[in-house]
Design a protein around this nucleic acid. Structure first.
Lengths: 245, 245
DNA sequence: ATTTATAAACGTCAAAAATACGTTTGCTAT
DNA sequence: ATAGCAAACGTATTTTTGACGTTTATAAAT
């Protein structure tokens, strides 16, 4: 049986997924579709974030973790609560009111918004009952509720965050190449970076450790592999040190 | 008559006040005191943040603005929503339970926390029915609920924020000296800064405008006065440019 | 076996910024 | 006058950045 819910508080999750093969940053969205039973008109046809009510016995963080797990099966991903959205009219658009009649919603719901950072390849969307789908963060479809705004603010926060903390390494394998890091920064920040300067700066960081190992199975000069040392990072840097790429 | 409240959602405000004369950053707190009617034992004797329930018809920002105005009379101050706190047991400490019996609280209340930035001299605490009082941010008294944690997180956020946006100038008069800016940074960040280097860096910013005016009424060499130009700042810098002092 | 294509990796130079100090200046009070 | 003092300026060195050119190692093609 489902635990008791707090009816007017929800958590919404902006799930950012980095696609290594296309080197693009994506957002995981859920299809919302409804047509009139009588006229067969399309009443609602758009996408929304994943989210759910907070249970009475869980923390907000736990709600976010649960919501992510239910959609993707994943746990232990990087997660950040970045803002609460609580305008009294935030669910009052015509389409949303139609939708609310068909779902279990409190009309004035305040949502605590989180974002997650993970790899698209870690999510299996095949057996997915929510019709969830990845969209490039710069090519989002029509969105319901105030979810467009939530995504925009999450993305802003993410850009700032990845310049001030090494969260980017959570999107890379344990052993990575310099160019993989650069691709990631470029995808998230939406900028071009000079490879030679980026390389020099990154290699000079004490927490970037060169391994005795190179890429295998590539048809070009195999790249040197590196690892990120959280230990070194934590000891070398006091809080609030800005990375700046 | 008071508007209808959302019983389980509140806004709490960390009011940071900069005291120009002592050059210290302070937090405005409200006295909480309760003694047993029978035994006269002191049941609760500590401080809490100012805060209140969200009304059904207002936005979260409006709640914060209202709460600040009721305590200080001030409007238009710098305000930032920085985090929501919603652990199910966040109001469940023994003292807090005693207090809740005596006040109008929902036991599982999620609070949206804001911080404000203003000058202590702008607040008149004389005719204050809340027994509000300033405390240096580094010498806080015993705090109720989870308000200690809320203040700590607000302060962390503030430190990062004032390095990435020129919010510090909201704490200075229209015309200020370089050393006043330095004092402010030192108070907020809790660090010492070399005056000669700081001076040079600040003067070189295009948005710091030297005025044709000097201090008057000082018994030393009067300092050059400057102003901050938001216009120049906005046009010169695209979003997310990090200031770094 | 040699060449070719290509990404990886290294190198250089000038400009800008940061760091760590020393010195001079202009004001008021004595 | 001059003493005291913060304001303001100066300087030398090191670090970091930005914008480039060049070389190297590998697999695949010839």
């Amino acid at each position: 049986m489902e635990p008791e819910k707090i009816l007017n508080i929800s958590v919404d999750c902006v799930v950012f997924g980095y696609d290594t093969s296309t080197k693009s940053l994506n957002v995981l969205l859920i299809k919302r579709y409804l047509e009139s039973e009588t006229t067969k008109d399309i009443l609602v046809d758009d996408y929304v974030l994943t989210g759910y009510h907070v249970y009475k016995t869980e923390t907000l963080d736990e709600t976010a973790t649960r919501v992510l797990k239910e959609l993707t099966g994943l746990t232990g991903q990087y997660k950040k609560q970045f803002k609460a959205f609580g305008d009294p009219d935030r669910l009052m658009n015509p389409k949303d009111l139609i939708w609310i009649k068909n779902a279990e919603f409190h009309k004035r719901t305040t949502t605590i918004a989180y974002y997650f950072l993970l790899k698209t390849e870690d999510v299996d969307l095949k057996n997915n009952k929510n019709k969830a789908q990845w969209f490039p963060v710069n090519a989002l479809p029509e969105l319901g509720f105030d979810h467009k705004q939530i995504i925009v603010e999450a993305y802003e926060d993410l850009k700032v965050k990845c310049l001030s903390e090494p969260i980017i390494f959570k999107l890379l394998p344990y052993k990575f190449t310099i160019n993989e890091v650069q691709d990631l920064y470029q995808s998230i920040l939406g900028i071009e970076i000079d490879n030679r300067n980026f390389r020099r700066k990154l290699i000079n960081k004490k927490y970037i450790i060169a391994l005795d190992e190179k890429q295998v199975g590539v048809s070009k000069k195999p790249a040197q592999l590196y690892m990120f040392s959280k230990e070194v990072y934590d000891t070398v840097f006091q809080k609030n040190y800005l990375i700046s790429i």
